[in-house]
Design a protein around this nucleic acid. Structure first.
Lengths: 372, 372
DNA sequence: ATGAAAGCGCTAACAA
DNA sequence: TTGTTAGCGCTTTCAT
């Protein structure tokens, strides 16, 4: 008896009942493949075949299903799709945080991805302060295998390479591991920066380095020391401090540097953010940049041009680095044979935060016209 | 008989066989929950409970499972997790493309998300040229319901609001629908820009508008006309052209504008990118900005300060808009009662692309010092 | 040419 | 306290 009742309640799968059609019509919810199937009067398997362009579906059926798809506005769920197929045509860019550096890379990658058939998914672990190390590993574990077909990781500390999953690192914290890598010539850039300050006549030059565990930071400091040595200028170790690469972390060491009785006449900051921080600190101490202190940065993030005075800095081709990273990733996935280490050049960008030392005699320019 | 054979081949679920342990040890692949379960000698259900902090697991078990998790470096798959639980603690930001405008919003959102417990996932449809309309609908359909708990959509044309899924629009193309919205005071900003040009003495002022189907473009043009009318200056309709909001789309109309026999002495471009485009076109025609032509933009993307001459523009607090959008979304999800329409103020940023008209007599400043 | 059924990695009833 | 079971929405054999 009870068996009979059960059968009455269950809709036999062979009968796409009238009730289904009613449901299919009024559907304010997310429309899923089963909705398409029901409305088109076919199975989900058939819809899947149509969606993925598989063979073995009658032309008429394809037609009808596609009709329903566009009518219902169906779009496959990325989550479900990837869980099953392990192929999504989505590439990931994993960052700790969306700040000037990573967003410039993003712009470059975004341009490059056009026409490749991939879409871009940028994922921020939300770990701005670098408090929890291993964000790159966690983000990767969370997204790889499902969701994305490959990843660009920005300034990772460590990345164990999973098999069957392609990863390229941009500006990794440790030196070239086996990982495909894009970076810029940090060493040469640092030499460039230091030589510029030297050429302006500075001799007491300070350096605000990044954390010593970062490869780029190490290289920039090494470049600084090399240029100083080549110029025969001794480095005063009290003028070399760890500034980290963030605005907040640079404040204290910058203050210490500028509080020294014989403070430096110029500072080479490890990156633009710490340079900007240094300028802020200087201003707070009543020092004028560049009159009392020359400051040079590194990176050339857009923000460096927006501060007052505009920051003289070393430019890395950030957008191009993002583009190259994306291209490398695409090639890797496609199995293209190519070199997997790309180093891009750096260049000096002179703006207004540096001045010769000692300062030239200040001429008072007679102002003949004062615009309203 | 055959039944007996079947039973022999199937591993009884009550016996986590020795074979499993071997597999569990050497595992270079992505580690999944079942691996953790096997290694810890519990069921996946128990692991799930531990991962999600559910009650009803012995302290000792929790301990052991957590041990294994960190030892194996297990991280839940976003795809699988969201497919099942419909709750991911990930918020999406949907953009057509990662360009200066959207990346500024991203920076603001990224700062705001810290401490909310959410992570950020920015998704680019890859539709830069605006070729395929409806990218926002497609991206949303692809990610909502799974993967993300809510979304911020940047400059959407249309968005049908799904039930049970929160969406906030930033600078939507159409006027305020029912959708929660963040935008800036486009009208007031346009008045500001126009008044500035008028105050410099300009009367023949051109306007390069956005596409008329965009609300922000309409408002900016309306503000322009209002300011002109209030100043009693007639708008020459030949000086008003559709520039679109992109560098490429602005080139032709800018050229037309500047080729006019009585070309404008100043141009108010609908946004920074078209202003930059206008400056390029002017340069190509041998016109000097600001000497022969004043140009003012709108948005204040970082790039506007990087061009030569630096662009005078109207600033929208882009990062703050991103932050407000994110906060609104979080509140919406949390069910907080609050206003769902936020309009932020615009401001004039004077840089170097505008000059009084007619130009003041050019005084030749005697250069007494020329720095090397 | 089409559909039934299994299963991707996970969560949530419910049983034990 | 723990495990069994049934799916989430999709793809993919394998029958039919």
């Amino acid at each position: 008896m009870s068996i009979v009742i059960d059968i009455v309640f269950e809709t036999p799968p062979t009968l796409p009942a009238a009730a289904s059609i009613i449901i299919g019509v009024a559907f304010p919810q997310r429309v899923k493949m089963s909705d398409v199937a029901r409305t088109a009067g076919v199975s989900v398997a058939t819809v899947s075949k149509v969606v993925n362009g598989r063979y073995g579906v009658a032309a008429a059926t394809v037609e009808r299903v596609q009709q329903v798809i566009s009518q219902l506005g169906y779009e496959a769920s990325l989550g479900a799709q990837s869980l099953r197929s392990h192929r999504t045509n989505v590439l990931g860019i994993l960052v700790a945080e969306f700040e000037p550096f990573s967003t410039e890379l993003l712009k470059g990658a975004s341009k490059e991805v056009a026409g490749t058939g991939y879409q871009l998914l940028a994922y921020s672990s939300g770990d701005g302060g670098g408090t929890s190390i291993g964000w790159e590993r966690r983000s990767l574990a969370r997204l790889s295998g499902t969701l994305i077909d490959g990843a660009v990781i920005v300034t990772p500390t460590v990345v164990e390479t999973k098999q069957d999953f392609h990863v390229v690192a941009v500006d990794p914290h440790t030196g070239p591991s086996g990982l495909p890598t894009i970076d810029s010539d940090n060493f040469a850039g640092a030499v460039l920066a230091t030589n510029y300050l030297l050429s302006l006549g500075h001799r007491r030059i300070g350096h605000l380095s990044g954390r010593p565990d970062l490869e780029s930071a190490r290289l920039r400091e090494a470049g600084f020391r090399k240029a100083m040595a080549d110029a025969g200028v001794a480095v005063d170790e009290r003028l070399v401090r760890v500034g980290g690469f963030r605005v907040e972390s640079a404040e204290a060491p910058a203050f210490e540097l500028l509080s020294l009785p014989d403070r430096p006449t110029a500072v080479f900051a490890g990156n633009d953010l710490s340079a900007i921080s240094t300028m802020d600190v200087a201003r707070g101490m009543g020092l004028s940049v560049p009159d009392d202190l020359s400051v040079i940065g590194f990176d050339n993030v857009p923000e460096s041009a927006l501060v007052n005075p505009p920051l003289t800095t070393i430019t890395q081709p950030l957008q191009r680095m993002g583009a190259e990273a994306l291209r490398l990733l695409v090639d890797l996935i496609a199995g293209v044979e190519r070199s997997t280490h790309i180093r891009l050049p750096t260049e000096l960008v002179v703006r207004s935060s540096c001045r010769p030392f000692p300062p030239p005699p200040r001429a008072s320019l007679p102002l003949t016209v004062r615009p309203t």
